[in-house]
């Protein structure tokens, strides 16, 4: 192996950057899709219809009891069968992530919505707004403000979990580093680099969340 060699890292940068782009895209889609589906689930969990409540509740309970890795595997094999042709590891991973993260985002959003005082909806309804308008203009903006820090922490978790796509051979940041390290026999440098990059990004993001939390606190 020899001494720690920075040149190894420099030479590997283009490939690593490609891997990082996959990681970032997966993170972004997982967060956006997860929040979008999470809102739908949260609204269902809070709806007056027992059917909707139970459906969403069962979904959340189920998804939160499964390991993400299993879901990634599952969709890697299931999605091609469902759509009739291969879709590639990336899309099955995206679907798996969205479905999984939505369960967690749902619970964050639900508690945010429940935290908004009931009188606020009363006031909105009394002024002639519909339930949906109250949700959009009164409840969700307040709920989002309250849950922003938790949402961001969960988003950092999504970023870290993306490294699990390693199991289906998708070339994300970690997989790219692993491949290069294996090829050039430089696993020490590569694994260290991966750790440093993840640490710097996640630590910076958590610090930002902390700052934000202090700013939005009254």
């Amino acid at each position: 192996m020899g001494a720690f060699d920075f040149n190894v890292i420099v030479k590997a940068l283009p490939l690593l950057w490609e891997g990082m782009q996959v990681t970032l895209l997966l993170t972004a889609l997982g967060i956006l899709g997860g929040i979008a589906l999470g809102i739908v689930l949260a609204v269902m969990r809070l709806s007056r219809s027992r059917l909707f409540r139970n459906l969403a509740g069962a979904y959340v309970d189920l998804l939160r009891s499964l390991p993400l890795v299993l879901l990634i595997f599952w969709f890697y094999f299931l999605v091609p069968i469902a759509v009739g042709h291969p879709v590639g590891g990336f899309y099955s991973a995206v679907i798996g992530f969205i479905l999984f993260e939505a369960a967690y985002f749902c619970e964050i959003i639900r508690s945010g919505i429940e935290g908004v005082r009931r009188g606020q909806v009363m006031a909105g309804l009394a002024s002639g707004l519909t339930q949906a308008q109250c949700m959009r203009f009164i409840i969700l903006p307040q709920a989002f403000r309250a849950m922003l820090p938790v949402l961001l922490m969960q988003s950092i978790n999504v970023f870290k979990s993306t490294s699990l796509v390693y199991v289906i051979g998708l070339r994300d940041f970690l997989t790219a580093a692993d491949l290069i390290g294996g090829r050039d026999n430089r696993l020490t440098e590569m694994y260290l680099l991966v750790a440093v990059v993840f640490f710097v990004i996640c630590w910076t993001a958590s610090q930002a969340v902390g700052l934000l939390q202090r700013r939005i606190a009254p």
């Binding site: 005082r117 009188g119 606020q120 009363m122 006031a123 909105g124 009394a126 002024s127 002639g128 707004l129 308008q133 203009f137 009164i138 903006p141 307040q142 403000r145």
Partner: peptide
């Protein structure tokens, strides 16, 4: 309707509060 606990929308300015239903209703 006016409530005991005011129920102004805390995320909107005073004018925003008074405009919301005017705009959307």
């Amino acid at each position: 309707m006016v409530f005991q606990s005011f129920e102004l929308y805390p995320h909107m300015s005073v004018v925003g509060n008074i405009c919301l239903a005017q705009l959307h209703v």
